[in-house]
Simulated assay, not measured.
Amino acid sequence: MKNICLPIYLLVFGLCWSLNTGSAQSGSQWESLSAADGSEPVQRHEAAFVRIGEKFYLLGGRGIRPVSIYDPQSQTWTLGQKPPVEIHHFQPVVYNDKVYIIGALTGQYPGETPLPKVIIYDPATDEWSEGATIPENRRRGSAGLSVYKDKIYIACGIKDGHRGDHKTWLDVYDPQTNTWEQLPDAPRARDHFQAVVVKHKLYLVGGRRSAAPDNVFNDLEGKVDVYDLKKGTWSTISEELPTKRAGLFLATVPKNKIVVLGGETGDQQLAHSEMEVLNTKKGSWESWSPMIQGRHGTGAIVYKGQLIVASGCGNRGGSPELKTMEVYNLK
Rank of each mutant, 00 (worst) to 15 (best):
L220M: 10
K244H: 13
D267F: 02
L202C: 05
T233S: 13
T265Q: 11
V259R: 01
S235G: 09
L278G: 02
A189C: 05
E181S: 10
N215W: 08
D214S: 14
D225H: 02
L270Q: 15
G266F: 01
I258M: 09
S235N: 06
W169D: 15
R208G: 04
Y203I: 07
P175Q: 07
I258R: 02
L170W: 03
L250E: 04
L170V: 08
L220V: 11
H162Y: 15
T252W: 08
L202A: 04
E221V: 15
E274Q: 13
P187S: 11
W180P: 01
S210G: 06
G263W: 11
H192K: 07
V205N: 06
T252C: 01
E221M: 14
E274F: 14
T168G: 00
T179M: 14
D214R: 15
E274K: 11
L261V: 07
P213S: 09
D219G: 05
N178F: 01
T236M: 01
A271F: 12
V197N: 06
S238Q: 11
G206K: 07
P242C: 10
D165L: 15
H166T: 13
D191W: 04
W234K: 04
I237P: 02
G157I: 08
I158A: 03
S235W: 03
V198I: 13
E181A: 08
Y203C: 08
P184G: 09
V197D: 03
K223G: 01
L229Y: 02
V172W: 08
